[in-house]
Design a protein around this nucleic acid. Structure first.
Lengths: 339, 339
DNA sequence: TTGTAAGCGTTATCAT
DNA sequence: ATGATAACGCTTACAA
């Protein structure tokens, strides 16, 4: 396409201004705050915008106003469906408030997270949402200096950077373990992801041990396992525990799709659940309710975490709130036939 | 924090320049193309950057150079795990090439897609990736005028906007249907999502019917169903077909998690698979291989679609390629015990 | 209600 | 190898 002045390229605000016979400032007002402009001018501007196919340049706008409508999000893994609901929640709220989402993936590495945070700050994002709660010192320093508001939502940390929106992994794990104890199970196995690299797993282990103590059950090291995530890994954990020195009467799988893998392995071997061993899961995958038998699990507020994170961030950005903030969202136990 | 001149706020390039005793232009060169600058200057700039905690402002950079390193992606649903692998693939490649990803969600609506595209163009993205292949006329017009390169990857469309990276939904559906016919099944049911709103489902229906004809099997309208996605929906589809006027000996579930729901329903009812009815799925969810019996399915190049989309887009952006392009990625049939 | 002028923080371009 | 100057396209601040 070609503009009337013969130059090619995208139309700029001054092309619109010229056509509508007003200044660029008036065009700017007509677009961002129509009430500030006379109806006549508003109409002429709208018509000119249409005629030249004007698409505002937000880079220029943001540079000039020192305000952007972009939120940066770092998750450990985009592919992991657990994070997907949270991202969906964030996206829903942002869209309603006319903000954009930039997303990056740390691959569970703090260094990659730091790189992503730097890239976001370079884009002058209006806010950050970080799934993880442990960061490199450099990342923390950059965020501090930038003054950009941040929400963390991996777990309820005691010393947040700024705001936290999550549920308590420790409480949830404790609640499920107590639930099993109350049902009469005495040798409760526990399988999680590696705690050394994962604050969430650490909290879940703490909750498990706290519950054992509370229920007056001894802690058996042989009943606690750390595994990578995945279906096959869940099956393997099941077998290892069942063939170990202390045979559990129930196993709580506090990580990823481990419980699903274990449940399917029981089905393959024809082991009755909970006759041979009871199985409990940590996350509310739809599927857990459709297995045979359906699996007891925790219902975690994944979508809600996303929504609330976006909301508190926007509140802060738009000056409706200030200061640290911790939102402790609630979880539920969904009791099913597997326990 | 406070800068040496007493002003507060983020450090700018001129703060770095002043401290390193060079011009901003030299700082700019030292950062973007270090080879163009003497080793001495390079070191002084690096030191100054560190000292003031300088984070470059890419908004200003992009405005000035008319180049951005942001790619916009629109998917129908962020939450849907099928798209998650593709997003992961895109993200992997972009990170390696120092580009950023903006993501938006159309909720399967063309109008929402148009809004997302407009927002991306306002941010002056360097390229677009659209999962869907049908767009509003306004969206098409905007993209055309902007000159921004685009990749579509929902299905292999005959009339792409620009570039396409996908597999052929029609071929894949045809291949699986023929596979079932070759195994000796004569009354092959077919369940997909609603074709009216989904180009992918349309293509899959076409493939199914083409295969029937090729195999010399009659098309039975009663054997073809359209359902919403979801586990429960798959179970319902199974029951409807099994209780319908023409009882299938095999069912091909060409949508979402429908096959999983159906397989689990068979398990609940104790129906032997494939004794009572054979089941085939369309997508390679990990889980399908772990069900009892494991389910025959198509292995689709989800991750690869993401990677290649990002690659062809970057090739175009960086001037290594031009003109339309269609990448037809390959799928495989994974034969398992359910058929 | 509308306009003018001066930036926002970079990079392109042309000098030296 | 380095620097001066003028954009990039918009908004802020002030003026009329």
């Amino acid at each position: 396409m070609t503009r009337e002045d013969g130059k090619s390229g995208a139309a700029r605000m001054r092309d619109v201004a010229r056509m509508a016979q007003v200044s660029t400032m008036t065009v700017s007002r007509a677009l961002t705050d129509p009430a500030k402009v006379s109806p006549d001018v508003r109409a002429r501007v709208a018509e000119a915008v249409r005629a030249v196919g004007y698409v505002p340049n937000k880079l220029a706008g943001s540079l000039s106003s020192s305000r952007s409508r972009i939120i940066g999000l770092v998750v450990p893994s985009i592919e992991n469906s657990l994070f997907a609901s949270t991202v969906q929640g964030i996206s829903d709220v942002l869209r309603r408030h006319d903000h954009q989402l930039m997303i990056a993936d740390s691959g569970y590495s703090m260094e990659a997270e730091e790189a992503a945070i730097r890239a976001f700050l370079e884009q002058r994002v209006a806010g950050l949402i970080l799934h993880d709660t442990t960061h490199t010192p450099a990342a923390v320093e950059m965020i501090r200096r930038s003054g950009v508001p941040v929400v963390e939502n991996g777990t309820l940390v005691p010393d947040p950077l700024d705001m936290v929106v999550s549920y308590s992994n420790q409480d949830a794990s404790r609640a499920m373990t107590l639930h099993l104890a109350r049902l009469g199970y005495r040798r409760i196995g526990f399988v999680s992801l590696h705690a050394a690299t994962n604050a969430r797993s650490r909290d879940r282990q703490l909750g498990y041990r706290a519950a054992l103590e509370e229920a007056g059950l001894p802690f058996e090291p042989a009943l606690m396992l750390e595994m990578p995530g995945g279906l096959a890994s869940g099956a393997e954990a099941l077998l290892r525990l069942m063939e170990g020195p202390v045979v559990p009467d129930a196993i709580f799988f506090a990580g990823d799709v481990l419980a699903m893998g274990a449940s399917l392995e029981c089905a393959r071997r024809g082991w009755p659940v909970p006759g041979k061993v009871a199985i409990a899961a940590f996350d509310n995958f739809d599927l857990l309710g459709h297995l045979v038998p359906p699996v007891t699990t925790l219902k975690l507020p994944r979508l809600e975490i996303g929504r609330r994170s976006a909301e508190v961030l926007l509140d802060r950005i738009q000056g409706r709130a200030s200061g640290p903030l911790a939102v402790d969202l609630r979880f539920e136990i969904i009791h099913r036939a597997s326990t």
